[in-house]
Design a protein around this nucleic acid. Structure first.
Length: 468
RNA sequence: GGCGCCAUCGCCAAGUGGUAAGGCCGGAGCCUGCAAAGCUUCUAUCCCCAGUUCAAAUCUGGGUGGCGCCUCCA
């Protein structure tokens, strides 16, 4: 397995801290609103990663957090006059529903900030004890960035002159403008939590560091807490930089051995943002597109590239996914359960092992589809070939998470029962006309069938219709 | 302004030193009563300039053009 480490900025061979085990932590959503396509992309990428690692034989411990303490949640709750739990429960559930539609497996652990406060207190106390944090007069606790010689080693940023000047100009008690809050004290009756440091709420960077320590970190094994830490590219700074600093200074290890950051999703060439009014929520996309198609499309480009979501490309993806299902149609009826290794399986995994090279993986799939179709065309009954193709298809389902539907239903989704029956009736009539070589009638029947927004195809197995 | 990423066929997109994968669209053909589906086949020298090398899309330098982060963000 090779992984592009976005901190070292090179592709590195992946060597796990513990033999055959991988700990993976991905920054999950802040649950104050519906998830958009960007959340989908990130969840999809790391879903794929965990599948590939498992296929490689690793026992994967995958954690993706739910940030359920956050100023935006509190703001929304107070605006609506409800508890933050009402907000977070609602959007956590919505997140799970969206992810399920995209075929994303649930992570092994889904830690919540509200359930990890003990770990945060411990970390803050450690940082205070070790002289990496300080409390100011209003009760806020800050991380002292100057006390960490390695600060900025994750993002490779350099402190500029402005920031140094800010330090002097700053009227508050922060020692350095780059210092960030570990604990915000709250005295104004806002929603807050009790802590050894007084009432308040944790800084958002702290949540992830603490949850990693609590749920994933392996002690005394190496100089790293976990194997892989992932998230969106925008999290590299300041979020991950600060996470790394907190962990480094409060424990005896660095936070992660490998860092992975996925690229952004843009809509028709524009950045998704609320101010532009083009946030594309998953639940809205699902009203138009099949979840599996969205999975296929969002996964079709390398995870590190930025992704430009648009209808034209999505249609091309649909046609590509259709090919897979057409082959599945041809193989329909065959039941195969086998762990048999095939050349295809080896090639597919090999592609994905290379930093999740999905493009190559898809080309391997396309070539398999073409090759099987070709053989099937040239010499009808190839039982062994069909069996092997079925095994290969099952592997695609397992590794990439698409191709799971019944192939006939896949092409017919969204057509009601009444129409189905009508179509079946028309097809039978047409087949009779065809048999009698009454092509004028059969063609007019076909026109009628087409008017239902479907297309038909005559095959050796009979006549089938598909939604256009 | 600081740090960084990217530029490959009409479109999407791999390849990162050894002579350009794959998909969509399009052309031609096979199959088909005609279609559809499937199959066969055709279509790029890699933004520009200079350099390194036996050899560069791949490395170096300089342009040009996109984009990201630096504030909450997947």
């Amino acid at each position: 397995m090779y992984i592009f480490d976005s901190v070292q900025k090179i592709k590195r061979e992946f060597i796990s801290l513990k033999k055959n085990e991988v700990s993976l932590y991905v920054c999950g959503p802040t649950v104050y609103d519906d998830a958009h396509l960007g959340h989908a992309k990130s969840a999809l990428v790391f879903d794929l990663l965990s599948r590939v690692l498992r296929a490689e034989g690793y026992h994967v411990k995958y954690a993706r957090n739910i940030t359920d303490i956050d100023d935006k949640i509190i703001k929304k709750a107070s605006e609506l006059g409800v508890s933050i739990k009402e907000i977070t429960d609602k959007y956590t559930e919505a997140y799970h529903v969206d992810m399920a539609h995209l075929g994303i497996q649930r992570p092994d652990i889904e830690p919540k900030a509200t359930e990890s406060l003990d770990a945060m207190f411990l970390m803050i106390q450690n940082l205070l004890d070790r002289g990496h944090a300080y409390q100011i007069s209003n009760g806020d606790i800050y991380f002292d960035t100057v006390s960490d010689a390695e600060y900025l080693s994750i993002s490779h940023r350099v402190q500029n002159e402005d920031e140094k000047q800010n330090r002097v100009l700053n009227s508050d008690e922060k020692k350095n403008s780059a210092d960030f809050a570990l604990w915000k004290s709250v005295n104004d009756g806002d929603i807050s939590f009790d802590s050894p440091f007084g009432k308040g709420r944790p800084g958002w960077h702290l949540e992830c560091s603490a949850m990693i320590e609590k749920h994933l970190a392996c002690e005394n094994v190496s100089k790293y807490a976990i194997d892989i830490h992932g998230g969106g590219a925008d999290l590299l700074f300041p979020h991950h930089e600060n996470e790394a600093a907190q962990t480094r200074c409060s424990t005896n290890h660095e936070i992660a051995a490998y860092w992975m950051h996925n690229g952004f999703v843009n809509i028709d060439g524009e950045k998704m943002s609320k101010s532009l009014g083009n946030s594309f929520f998953i639940k809205d996309a699902l009203k138009i597109y099949d979840g599996e198609l969205l999975r296929f499309y969002l996964l079709s480009t390398h995870y590190r590239s930025n992704f430009n979501f648009n209808d034209e490309d999505l249609l091309a993806s649909k046609k590509r996914l259709d090919k897979l299902y057409r082959l599945k149609k041809r193989l329909f009826g065959l039941e195969v359960h086998s762990d048999m290794q095939t050349a295809f399986k080896t090639k597919l995994l090999h592609a994905l092992k290379d930093d999740l090279n999905v493009s190559t993986a898809l080309s391997v799939i396309d070539e398999m589809i073409s090759s099987v179709n070709e053989t099937l065309d040239s010499a009808g009954k190839h039982k062994e070939l069909k069996r092997e193709a079925m095994i290969d298809m099952a592997y695609i389902e397992e590794l990439l998470g698409f191709g799971l539907q019944n192939p006939f239903e896949y092409f017919q989704t969204g057509v009601d029962k009444e129409t189905r029956e009508k179509l079946q009736e028309l097809i039978e009539k047409r087949n009779i006309a065809k048999k009698e070589k009454d092509f004028a009638t059969s063609d007019s029947l076909r026109d009628e069938i087409l008017s239902y927004g479907v297309t038909i195809m005559d095959t050796p197995q009979g006549t089938f219709w598909e939604r256009v």
